[in-house]
């Protein structure tokens, strides 16, 4: 970890950031709370044929239809298995609201700039390109998602 990057990082994150932390497979991920519109329970998803595989389909959000993305598929693993704890995080994107299926939403956490580090170099798999950085919170490691990249086609 070079000093330079740390400096840039901390410049970017001068203030404390509220982050929504969720679980995907066995890992913790975080997204900036300002991007999150709401968190809803899993509901019936209508698949849309002939779309990218990571687009699971459409759900009814109070009379509007919004697309739902499966990050498992996006990150190159199998589809999420739905449990009692599964949630849809509704986030804002350039193309309107989008739902993201997660295995569980664990907490909302305040992260300080100095807690955030660059992605470890060993993480060279496909999912790496969607990662903004990694935050250390005690013993817990939280992968901070680059939402725009993760949702881009």
């Amino acid at each position: 970890m070079s000093e330079e990057i740390l400096e840039i990082q901390s410049e970017e994150v001068q203030e404390d950031r509220q982050t929504v932390v969720f679980r995907l497979a066995d890992e913790s991920y975080g997204i900036d709370i300002f991007r999150v519109n709401e968190i809803i329970r899993l509901r019936e998803i209508t698949p849309v044929p002939r779309t990218d595989q990571h687009i699971r389909g459409l759900v009814n959000l109070r009379g509007k239809t919004i697309p739902v993305v499966d990050l498992h598929v996006r990150f190159g693993s199998i589809e999420a298995s739905e449990t009692e704890n599964s949630r849809i995080i509704v986030v804002e994107s350039d193309n309107g609201n989008v739902g993201v299926i997660v295995d569980a939403v664990t907490e909302v956490m305040t992260l300080h700039g100095d807690q955030i580090e660059e992605t470890p170099a060993l993480a060279t798999d496909e999912s790496n390109e969607f990662v903004k950085g990694v935050a250390k919170h005690g013993e817990q490691l939280i992968t901070l998602l680059d939402l725009d990249k993760a949702l881009a086609a």
């Binding site: 044929p49 239809t65 086609a153």
Partner: peptide, 19 residues
């Protein structure tokens, strides 16, 4: 008729969605 989210792009054969 609800228009399809732009997110899904132009899906051939589907003109929209409804609830």
């Amino acid at each position: 008729i609800k228009s399809m989210s732009r997110f899904c792009g132009d899906v051939p054969g589907i003109s929209g969605a409804t609830i």
